[in-house]
Amino acid sequence: MTATDGFAVVRADSEFKLVALRDFPAGSRLFAVEGQITEEPTRYSVQVGAGIHLDLPGGHAPEELMDRFFWRFTNHSCAPNAQLRGRDFFALRPIEPWQEITFHYESTEYEMAEPFDCHCGESACRGRIEGFRYRTEDEREQLRPMLADHLLSMLNVVHR
């Protein structure tokens, strides 16, 4: 386990995940995302703008990845407890110690570099996660409250 400012990367059931080590009230800033700016999505990048992705820079030891780039272990959920605004994650609802930090990948990613079948177990599970591009208009509207600015602006253009 590696702790950084109230968070830990843990391995459970052969998967890594990011968990909170303390309480975070709804609306509180959790952490910033930093990395190397790229134009193309990768398996570990996060989209922070139109055609702008932050990825893990190469050449780092596993310990540094867990300490400095711990955001990379923020997993997907169709009913997340966090959202990305700009380059900062915020709590969508109260988060308790040892609760996993999750966000909805399609709230930031226009098109996933590696689409996958979701197994989050939530009643609102969307099944196949491919990116915002592949969602219906109704599904996009459901994502509106947690959409990153670059996707929100696309949604607003459609509704004009």
Rank of each mutant, 00 (worst) to 15 (best):
L21R: 15
V46G: 07
T38C: 06
A32L: 08
A12V: 12
A50K: 00
Q36C: 03
G49D: 01
E63Q: 13
Q36I: 07
H53A: 01
T42K: 01
H53M: 01
D55M: 08
S14D: 13
E39A: 14
E64D: 09
V19G: 09
L65S: 02
V33Y: 03
I52K: 11
V9H: 01
I52D: 01
R22K: 15
A12I: 09
E15R: 06
A8I: 13
E64C: 02
S14N: 07
A8N: 06
K17I: 01
G59R: 05
R43L: 13
A50Y: 01
A61N: 08
D67Q: 12
Q36R: 10
A50E: 01
L54I: 15
G58W: 07
P57E: 15
R22Q: 15
K17G: 14
V10N: 02
P25A: 15
V46Q: 04
A20N: 03
L56Y: 05
E15F: 08
S45P: 07
E64T: 06
M66S: 14
S14Y: 08
D23Y: 13
G51P: 05
D23E: 14
F69A: 12
V19E: 12
D23H: 14
L54Q: 15
D55T: 13
F69Y: 15
A26E: 14
R43D: 10
R11I: 14
L54P: 15
V46T: 08
F16P: 02
E40Y: 07
G58V: 07
